[in-house]
Design a protein around this nucleic acid. Structure first.
Lengths: 208, 208
DNA sequence: CAAGAATATGAGCGATTATTCGCTTTCGGT
DNA sequence: ACCGAAAGCGAATAATCGCTCATATTCTTG
Protein backbone atom coordinates (compact mmCIF):
# COMPACT_ATOMS: atom_id res chain seq x y z
CA UNK A 1 0.00 0.00 0.00
CA UNK A 2 2.58 2.55 -1.06
CA UNK A 3 0.07 5.28 -1.83
CA UNK A 4 2.39 8.15 -2.54
CA UNK A 5 3.59 8.60 -6.12
CA UNK A 6 6.97 7.01 -6.33
CA UNK A 7 8.84 9.84 -7.97
CA UNK A 8 8.40 12.59 -5.40
CA UNK A 9 11.13 12.02 -2.84
CA UNK A 10 14.70 10.95 -3.35
CA UNK A 11 15.01 7.37 -2.24
CA UNK A 12 18.13 6.13 -0.56
CA UNK A 13 19.43 3.12 -2.42
CA UNK A 14 19.48 0.08 -0.20
CA UNK A 15 20.40 -2.70 -2.58
CA UNK A 16 23.64 -3.15 -4.42
CA UNK A 17 21.96 -2.84 -7.79
CA UNK A 18 20.47 0.56 -7.09
CA UNK A 19 23.73 1.89 -5.70
CA UNK A 20 25.29 1.02 -9.04
CA UNK A 21 22.48 2.90 -10.78
CA UNK A 22 23.10 6.00 -8.70
CA UNK A 23 26.82 5.83 -9.42
CA UNK A 24 26.20 5.39 -13.12
CA UNK A 25 23.95 8.44 -13.14
CA UNK A 26 26.41 10.69 -11.34
CA UNK A 27 29.27 9.45 -13.49
CA UNK A 28 27.30 9.92 -16.70
CA UNK A 29 26.34 13.44 -15.66
CA UNK A 30 29.97 14.34 -15.00
CA UNK A 31 31.04 12.86 -18.33
CA UNK A 32 28.39 14.78 -20.22
CA UNK A 33 29.15 18.03 -18.43
CA UNK A 34 32.81 17.71 -19.37
CA UNK A 35 32.44 16.43 -22.91
CA UNK A 36 29.28 18.14 -24.12
CA UNK A 37 28.59 20.98 -21.72
CA UNK A 38 25.72 21.88 -19.45
CA UNK A 39 23.27 22.57 -22.25
CA UNK A 40 23.45 18.99 -23.46
CA UNK A 41 22.94 17.56 -20.01
CA UNK A 42 19.23 16.81 -20.31
CA UNK A 43 17.74 14.23 -18.00
CA UNK A 44 16.83 11.98 -20.91
CA UNK A 45 20.35 12.12 -22.30
CA UNK A 46 21.92 11.52 -18.92
CA UNK A 47 19.76 8.47 -18.36
CA UNK A 48 20.60 7.16 -21.80
CA UNK A 49 24.36 7.56 -21.30
CA UNK A 50 24.09 5.97 -17.86
CA UNK A 51 22.33 2.99 -19.43
CA UNK A 52 19.28 3.59 -17.29
CA UNK A 53 15.74 4.85 -17.80
CA UNK A 54 14.59 8.36 -16.95
CA UNK A 55 12.21 6.87 -14.44
CA UNK A 56 15.07 5.37 -12.48
CA UNK A 57 16.82 8.71 -12.48
CA UNK A 58 13.87 10.29 -10.71
CA UNK A 59 13.74 7.54 -8.14
CA UNK A 60 16.99 8.81 -6.64
CA UNK A 61 17.15 12.46 -7.65
CA UNK A 62 14.05 14.57 -7.12
CA UNK A 63 15.20 17.09 -9.71
CA UNK A 64 17.85 17.59 -12.30
CA UNK A 65 19.39 20.21 -10.07
CA UNK A 66 19.90 17.64 -7.33
CA UNK A 67 21.76 15.43 -9.77
CA UNK A 68 24.09 18.21 -10.80
CA UNK A 69 24.58 19.10 -7.15
CA UNK A 70 25.61 15.51 -6.49
CA UNK A 71 28.29 15.78 -9.17
CA UNK A 72 29.61 19.00 -7.67
CA UNK A 73 29.61 17.49 -4.20
CA UNK A 74 31.50 14.41 -5.33
CA UNK A 75 34.07 16.61 -7.02
CA UNK A 76 34.51 18.73 -3.93
CA UNK A 77 34.96 15.69 -1.75
CA UNK A 78 37.69 14.45 -4.07
CA UNK A 79 39.44 17.79 -3.73
CA UNK A 80 39.04 17.78 0.03
CA UNK A 81 40.56 14.30 0.23
CA UNK A 82 43.46 15.23 -2.02
CA UNK A 83 44.28 18.20 0.16
CA UNK A 84 43.40 16.67 3.49
CA UNK A 85 45.49 17.75 6.42
CA UNK A 86 47.86 19.96 4.49
CA UNK A 87 46.00 23.08 5.49
CA UNK A 88 46.26 22.23 9.18
CA UNK A 89 50.07 22.32 8.99
CA UNK A 90 50.09 25.80 7.51
CA UNK A 91 49.26 27.57 10.75
CA UNK A 92 52.60 26.67 12.31
CA UNK A 93 54.76 27.70 9.36
CA UNK A 94 56.55 31.01 8.83
CA UNK A 95 55.01 33.34 6.29
CA UNK A 96 56.98 32.45 3.19
CA UNK A 97 56.64 28.72 3.75
CA UNK A 98 52.96 29.07 4.55
CA UNK A 99 52.24 31.04 1.41
CA UNK A 100 54.13 28.54 -0.71
CA UNK A 101 52.16 25.67 0.79
CA UNK A 102 48.89 27.44 0.10
CA UNK A 103 49.83 28.04 -3.51
CA UNK A 104 50.86 24.42 -3.95
CA UNK A 105 47.66 23.19 -2.37
CA UNK A 106 45.64 25.45 -4.65
CA UNK A 107 47.38 24.06 -7.70
CA UNK A 108 46.79 20.49 -6.57
CA UNK A 109 43.13 21.24 -5.92
CA UNK A 110 42.67 22.67 -9.38
CA UNK A 111 44.40 19.67 -10.91
CA UNK A 112 42.11 17.02 -9.42
CA UNK A 113 39.79 17.17 -12.43
CA UNK A 114 40.50 20.37 -14.34
CA UNK A 115 37.92 19.89 -17.04
CA UNK A 116 35.13 19.23 -14.58
CA UNK A 117 36.34 22.08 -12.42
CA UNK A 118 36.12 24.38 -15.39
CA UNK A 119 32.56 23.36 -16.15
CA UNK A 120 31.58 23.87 -12.52
CA UNK A 121 33.16 27.32 -12.50
CA UNK A 122 32.02 28.53 -15.89
CA UNK A 123 28.91 26.74 -17.06
CA UNK A 124 26.77 25.76 -14.11
CA UNK A 125 23.93 28.17 -13.46
CA UNK A 126 24.37 29.86 -10.12
CA UNK A 127 21.35 28.30 -8.46
CA UNK A 128 20.73 27.50 -4.87
CA UNK A 129 22.05 24.01 -4.31
CA UNK A 130 25.64 24.76 -5.13
CA UNK A 131 26.18 27.42 -2.54
CA UNK A 132 28.62 24.96 -1.09
CA UNK A 133 31.17 26.44 -3.44
CA UNK A 134 30.79 29.84 -1.84
CA UNK A 135 30.99 28.22 1.58
CA UNK A 136 34.16 26.43 0.54
CA UNK A 137 35.78 29.67 -0.58
CA UNK A 138 34.67 31.47 2.54
CA UNK A 139 36.35 28.79 4.63
CA UNK A 140 39.57 29.44 2.78
CA UNK A 141 39.21 33.13 3.47
CA UNK A 142 38.50 32.64 7.17
CA UNK A 143 41.37 30.21 7.56
CA UNK A 144 43.82 32.56 5.93
CA UNK A 145 42.62 35.47 8.00
CA UNK A 146 43.18 33.46 11.14
CA UNK A 147 46.72 32.73 10.00
CA UNK A 148 47.41 36.42 9.44
CA UNK A 149 46.13 37.27 12.90
CA UNK A 150 48.43 34.68 14.41
CA UNK A 151 51.40 36.25 12.65
CA UNK A 152 50.29 39.83 12.87
CA UNK A 153 53.59 41.13 14.30
CA UNK A 154 55.63 39.79 11.41
CA UNK A 155 53.47 41.51 8.83
CA UNK A 156 53.73 44.85 7.09
CA UNK A 157 49.98 45.13 6.57
CA UNK A 158 47.54 46.61 9.03
CA UNK A 159 44.12 45.83 7.57
CA UNK A 160 44.03 42.06 7.86
CA UNK A 161 40.56 41.78 6.36
CA UNK A 162 41.69 43.56 3.24
CA UNK A 163 44.99 41.69 3.13
CA UNK A 164 43.17 38.36 3.33
CA UNK A 165 40.94 39.38 0.46
CA UNK A 166 43.95 40.39 -1.61
CA UNK A 167 45.93 37.23 -0.95
CA UNK A 168 43.13 34.68 -1.31
CA UNK A 169 41.79 36.31 -4.46
CA UNK A 170 45.25 36.47 -5.99
CA UNK A 171 46.23 32.88 -5.25
CA UNK A 172 42.90 31.54 -6.44
CA UNK A 173 42.96 33.55 -9.66
CA UNK A 174 46.55 32.68 -10.54
CA UNK A 175 46.18 28.96 -10.00
CA UNK A 176 42.75 28.87 -11.60
CA UNK A 177 43.88 30.66 -14.74
CA UNK A 178 47.12 28.76 -14.99
CA UNK A 179 45.57 25.32 -14.67
CA UNK A 180 42.31 25.88 -16.52
CA UNK A 181 43.16 28.38 -19.24
CA UNK A 182 46.83 27.96 -19.95
CA UNK A 183 47.25 24.24 -19.46
CA UNK A 184 48.86 23.69 -22.86
CA UNK A 185 51.44 26.44 -22.38
CA UNK A 186 52.12 25.23 -18.85
CA UNK A 187 54.33 22.17 -18.61
CA UNK A 188 55.27 21.06 -15.11
CA UNK A 189 58.54 22.98 -15.13
CA UNK A 190 56.79 26.20 -16.05
CA UNK A 191 54.12 25.54 -13.46
CA UNK A 192 56.83 25.26 -10.82
CA UNK A 193 58.05 28.64 -11.87
CA UNK A 194 54.57 30.04 -11.57
CA UNK A 195 54.37 28.68 -8.04
CA UNK A 196 57.63 30.49 -7.26
CA UNK A 197 56.34 33.72 -8.70
CA UNK A 198 52.99 33.56 -6.95
CA UNK A 199 54.74 32.83 -3.68
CA UNK A 200 57.08 35.76 -4.16
CA UNK A 201 54.22 38.06 -5.13
CA UNK A 202 52.19 37.36 -2.02
CA UNK A 203 55.13 37.05 0.37
CA UNK A 204 56.65 40.38 -0.56
CA UNK A 205 53.26 41.97 -0.20
CA UNK A 206 52.83 40.62 3.31
CA UNK A 207 56.35 41.07 4.59
CA UNK A 208 57.62 44.07 2.67
CA UNK B 1 8.85 40.79 -55.75
CA UNK B 2 11.12 40.32 -52.76
CA UNK B 3 11.56 36.59 -53.14
CA UNK B 4 13.87 35.81 -50.25
CA UNK B 5 12.26 34.91 -46.93
CA UNK B 6 12.54 37.98 -44.81
CA UNK B 7 13.77 36.40 -41.61
CA UNK B 8 16.96 34.74 -42.79
CA UNK B 9 19.56 37.52 -42.85
CA UNK B 10 20.08 40.34 -40.43
CA UNK B 11 18.81 43.48 -42.03
CA UNK B 12 20.53 46.75 -41.50
CA UNK B 13 18.03 49.31 -40.33
CA UNK B 14 17.82 52.22 -42.71
CA UNK B 15 14.93 54.24 -41.37
CA UNK B 16 14.75 56.06 -38.09
CA UNK B 17 11.88 53.92 -36.87
CA UNK B 18 13.75 50.66 -37.30
CA UNK B 19 16.86 51.99 -35.61
CA UNK B 20 14.70 52.70 -32.60
CA UNK B 21 13.43 49.13 -32.73
CA UNK B 22 16.94 47.72 -32.76
CA UNK B 23 17.89 49.92 -29.83
CA UNK B 24 14.81 48.88 -27.89
CA UNK B 25 15.65 45.23 -28.47
CA UNK B 26 19.25 45.52 -27.30
CA UNK B 27 18.21 47.61 -24.34
CA UNK B 28 15.45 45.19 -23.36
CA UNK B 29 17.84 42.28 -23.61
CA UNK B 30 20.34 43.98 -21.33
CA UNK B 31 17.62 44.83 -18.84
CA UNK B 32 16.34 41.27 -18.76
CA UNK B 33 19.82 39.80 -18.46
CA UNK B 34 20.50 42.02 -15.46
CA UNK B 35 17.13 41.78 -13.74
CA UNK B 36 16.00 38.24 -14.53
CA UNK B 37 19.06 36.37 -15.73
CA UNK B 38 19.98 34.56 -18.90
CA UNK B 39 17.44 31.78 -18.45
CA UNK B 40 14.54 34.22 -18.61
CA UNK B 41 15.85 35.94 -21.71
CA UNK B 42 13.64 34.18 -24.26
CA UNK B 43 13.13 35.83 -27.59
CA UNK B 44 9.39 36.21 -27.00
CA UNK B 45 9.97 37.80 -23.63
CA UNK B 46 12.62 40.13 -25.00
CA UNK B 47 10.31 41.27 -27.78
CA UNK B 48 7.50 41.83 -25.30
CA UNK B 49 9.65 43.93 -22.98
CA UNK B 50 10.98 45.88 -25.95
CA UNK B 51 7.39 46.62 -27.00
CA UNK B 52 7.97 44.91 -30.32
CA UNK B 53 6.89 41.68 -31.99
CA UNK B 54 9.07 38.58 -32.27
CA UNK B 55 8.93 38.92 -36.01
CA UNK B 56 10.59 42.30 -35.86
CA UNK B 57 13.29 40.87 -33.65
CA UNK B 58 14.22 38.36 -36.32
CA UNK B 59 14.34 41.04 -38.98
CA UNK B 60 17.49 42.43 -37.40
CA UNK B 61 18.99 39.54 -35.47
CA UNK B 62 19.29 36.18 -37.25
CA UNK B 63 19.43 34.33 -33.96
CA UNK B 64 19.03 34.90 -30.27
CA UNK B 65 22.76 34.48 -29.86
CA UNK B 66 23.39 37.41 -32.20
CA UNK B 67 21.19 39.57 -30.03
CA UNK B 68 23.08 38.66 -26.89
CA UNK B 69 26.34 39.26 -28.73
CA UNK B 70 25.10 42.74 -29.61
CA UNK B 71 24.53 43.45 -25.93
CA UNK B 72 28.02 42.31 -25.05
CA UNK B 73 29.51 44.37 -27.85
CA UNK B 74 27.66 47.49 -26.78
CA UNK B 75 28.86 47.01 -23.23
CA UNK B 76 32.44 46.57 -24.35
CA UNK B 77 32.30 49.70 -26.44
CA UNK B 78 31.04 51.64 -23.46
CA UNK B 79 34.00 50.37 -21.46
CA UNK B 80 36.42 51.19 -24.23
CA UNK B 81 35.08 54.73 -24.45
CA UNK B 82 35.24 55.23 -20.70
CA UNK B 83 38.86 54.19 -20.65
CA UNK B 84 39.87 55.71 -23.95
CA UNK B 85 43.34 57.14 -24.11
CA UNK B 86 44.28 56.41 -20.52
CA UNK B 87 46.12 53.29 -21.54
CA UNK B 88 48.23 55.14 -24.06
CA UNK B 89 49.69 57.35 -21.32
CA UNK B 90 50.79 54.36 -19.29
CA UNK B 91 53.73 53.51 -21.51
CA UNK B 92 55.65 56.65 -20.54
CA UNK B 93 55.12 56.33 -16.78
CA UNK B 94 57.49 54.81 -14.23
CA UNK B 95 56.54 51.41 -12.89
CA UNK B 96 54.69 52.38 -9.74
CA UNK B 97 52.68 55.08 -11.44
CA UNK B 98 51.94 52.82 -14.38
CA UNK B 99 50.68 50.02 -12.18
CA UNK B 100 48.49 52.39 -10.22
CA UNK B 101 46.99 53.75 -13.41
CA UNK B 102 46.26 50.25 -14.65
CA UNK B 103 44.53 49.33 -11.41
CA UNK B 104 42.46 52.50 -11.50
CA UNK B 105 41.50 51.91 -15.11
CA UNK B 106 40.49 48.35 -14.29
CA UNK B 107 38.25 49.57 -11.48
CA UNK B 108 36.63 52.15 -13.72
CA UNK B 109 36.05 49.55 -16.41
CA UNK B 110 34.34 47.23 -13.97
CA UNK B 111 32.20 50.07 -12.70
CA UNK B 112 30.70 51.03 -16.05
CA UNK B 113 27.79 48.66 -15.57
CA UNK B 114 28.68 46.22 -12.81
CA UNK B 115 25.48 44.22 -12.89
CA UNK B 116 25.63 43.67 -16.63
CA UNK B 117 29.32 42.92 -16.37
CA UNK B 118 28.56 40.27 -13.79
CA UNK B 119 25.99 38.60 -16.01
CA UNK B 120 28.40 38.65 -18.91
CA UNK B 121 31.13 37.10 -16.79
CA UNK B 122 29.07 34.54 -14.91
CA UNK B 123 26.11 33.52 -17.02
CA UNK B 124 27.04 33.98 -20.65
CA UNK B 125 30.07 31.69 -20.72
CA UNK B 126 27.55 28.95 -21.27
CA UNK B 127 27.28 30.05 -24.87
CA UNK B 128 29.89 30.45 -27.53
CA UNK B 129 29.90 33.89 -29.05
CA UNK B 130 31.79 35.73 -26.36
CA UNK B 131 35.24 35.13 -27.74
CA UNK B 132 35.51 38.88 -28.02
CA UNK B 133 36.07 38.93 -24.29
CA UNK B 134 39.06 36.66 -24.69
CA UNK B 135 40.39 38.93 -27.42
CA UNK B 136 39.86 41.95 -25.21
CA UNK B 137 41.81 40.34 -22.38
CA UNK B 138 44.57 39.25 -24.73
CA UNK B 139 44.98 42.85 -25.84
CA UNK B 140 45.45 43.85 -22.23
CA UNK B 141 48.03 41.13 -21.83
CA UNK B 142 49.96 42.13 -24.94
CA UNK B 143 49.90 45.79 -24.00
CA UNK B 144 51.22 45.09 -20.53
CA UNK B 145 53.91 42.81 -21.88
CA UNK B 146 55.07 45.56 -24.18
CA UNK B 147 55.28 47.91 -21.22
CA UNK B 148 57.43 45.45 -19.28
CA UNK B 149 59.79 45.06 -22.23
CA UNK B 150 60.18 48.82 -22.44
CA UNK B 151 61.16 48.95 -18.76
CA UNK B 152 63.02 45.68 -18.61
CA UNK B 153 66.13 47.13 -16.95
CA UNK B 154 64.18 48.53 -14.00
CA UNK B 155 62.57 45.19 -13.23
CA UNK B 156 63.53 42.38 -10.93
CA UNK B 157 61.81 39.75 -13.03
CA UNK B 158 63.40 37.87 -15.92
CA UNK B 159 60.52 35.95 -17.51
CA UNK B 160 58.37 38.76 -18.87
CA UNK B 161 55.78 36.42 -20.31
CA UNK B 162 55.18 34.88 -16.92
CA UNK B 163 55.32 38.24 -15.14
CA UNK B 164 52.69 39.65 -17.50
CA UNK B 165 50.45 36.71 -16.80
CA UNK B 166 50.88 37.19 -13.06
CA UNK B 167 50.22 40.94 -13.10
CA UNK B 168 47.30 41.00 -15.51
CA UNK B 169 45.58 38.06 -13.84
CA UNK B 170 46.06 39.59 -10.40
CA UNK B 171 44.79 43.05 -11.28
CA UNK B 172 41.80 41.69 -13.14
CA UNK B 173 40.84 39.28 -10.35
CA UNK B 174 41.19 41.86 -7.57
CA UNK B 175 39.16 44.54 -9.29
CA UNK B 176 36.59 42.07 -10.57
CA UNK B 177 36.00 40.53 -7.17
CA UNK B 178 36.02 43.84 -5.36
CA UNK B 179 33.52 45.52 -7.66
CA UNK B 180 31.26 42.60 -8.43
CA UNK B 181 31.25 40.50 -5.30
CA UNK B 182 32.03 42.82 -2.46
CA UNK B 183 30.30 45.96 -3.63
CA UNK B 184 28.28 46.36 -0.43
CA UNK B 185 31.30 46.01 1.85
CA UNK B 186 33.27 48.35 -0.40
CA UNK B 187 32.50 52.02 0.05
CA UNK B 188 34.62 54.40 -1.99
CA UNK B 189 37.08 54.97 0.81
CA UNK B 190 37.69 51.27 1.19
CA UNK B 191 37.97 50.89 -2.56
CA UNK B 192 40.72 53.50 -2.57
CA UNK B 193 42.55 51.43 -0.02
CA UNK B 194 42.16 48.36 -2.20
CA UNK B 195 43.67 50.28 -5.10
CA UNK B 196 46.62 51.16 -2.87
CA UNK B 197 47.07 47.55 -1.83
CA UNK B 198 46.80 46.16 -5.34
CA UNK B 199 49.31 48.72 -6.54
CA UNK B 200 51.72 47.83 -3.75
CA UNK B 201 51.28 44.11 -4.39
CA UNK B 202 52.14 44.31 -8.07
CA UNK B 203 54.77 47.02 -7.76
CA UNK B 204 56.79 45.21 -5.11
CA UNK B 205 56.60 42.08 -7.21
CA UNK B 206 57.99 43.83 -10.24
CA UNK B 207 60.61 46.02 -8.57
CA UNK B 208 61.63 44.01 -5.51
C1' DC C 1 8.73 -21.22 -3.82
C1' DA C 2 5.54 -17.58 -2.68
C1' DA C 3 4.86 -12.79 -2.12
C1' DG C 4 5.69 -8.26 -1.01
C1' DA C 5 9.17 -4.78 -1.36
C1' DA C 6 12.58 -2.69 -4.13
C1' DT C 7 14.00 -1.42 -8.52
C1' DA C 8 13.55 -0.54 -13.44
C1' DT C 9 11.04 0.84 -17.56
C1' DG C 10 9.70 4.24 -21.32
C1' DA C 11 5.75 6.26 -23.65
C1' DG C 12 3.85 10.44 -23.02
C1' DC C 13 2.19 14.93 -20.70
C1' DG C 14 2.43 19.80 -20.38
C1' DA C 15 5.21 23.61 -20.72
C1' DT C 16 8.59 26.32 -23.02
C1' DT C 17 11.59 27.40 -26.65
C1' DA C 18 13.61 29.53 -31.05
C1' DT C 19 12.19 30.47 -35.33
C1' DT C 20 8.97 31.10 -39.53
C1' DC C 21 5.84 33.32 -42.80
C1' DG C 22 1.70 35.17 -44.73
C1' DC C 23 -0.10 39.34 -43.94
C1' DT C 24 -0.84 44.43 -42.60
C1' DT C 25 0.77 49.03 -41.69
C1' DT C 26 3.84 52.88 -42.40
C1' DC C 27 7.33 55.42 -44.88
C1' DG C 28 9.66 58.00 -48.69
C1' DG C 29 9.85 59.56 -53.21
C1' DT C 30 7.26 61.20 -57.07
C1' DA D 1 -2.36 61.04 -54.04
C1' DC D 2 -0.02 56.97 -55.18
C1' DC D 3 3.02 52.91 -55.02
C1' DG D 4 6.86 50.03 -54.03
C1' DA D 5 9.84 49.22 -50.31
C1' DA D 6 10.66 49.04 -45.49
C1' DA D 7 9.08 47.84 -41.18
C1' DG D 8 6.02 45.50 -38.17
C1' DC D 9 2.97 41.88 -36.67
C1' DG D 10 1.71 37.45 -34.05
C1' DA D 11 -0.48 32.87 -34.51
C1' DA D 12 1.57 28.73 -35.73
C1' DT D 13 5.31 25.13 -35.90
C1' DA D 14 8.45 21.84 -34.57
C1' DA D 15 11.68 20.60 -31.36
C1' DT D 16 13.14 19.84 -26.69
C1' DC D 17 12.74 19.91 -21.98
C1' DG D 18 11.86 18.22 -17.04
C1' DC D 19 9.17 15.12 -15.12
C1' DT D 20 5.14 11.44 -14.09
C1' DC D 21 3.00 7.06 -13.71
C1' DA D 22 1.12 2.69 -14.81
C1' DT D 23 3.35 -1.35 -15.47
C1' DA D 24 7.03 -4.91 -15.56
C1' DT D 25 11.07 -7.08 -13.63
C1' DT D 26 14.18 -8.48 -9.91
C1' DC D 27 15.43 -9.02 -5.28
C1' DT D 28 14.93 -10.58 -0.42
C1' DT D 29 13.00 -13.00 3.06
C1' DG D 30 10.58 -16.67 5.46
Amino acid sequence: MTRKPLTKPRKTASQERSRATVDALVEATARILVKEGFDKASTNHIAEVAGVSVGSLYQYFPTKEALVAAVVERHQQEITQTVRGELADVLAQPVEKAVRMLVEVAVRAHRVDPRLHRVVAEQLPRVGELEKLATFNRENFTLFRAYLENHRDELRVDDLELASFVCVTTIEALTHNAVLHHAKAMPDERMDKLIDEATRLVTRYLLG
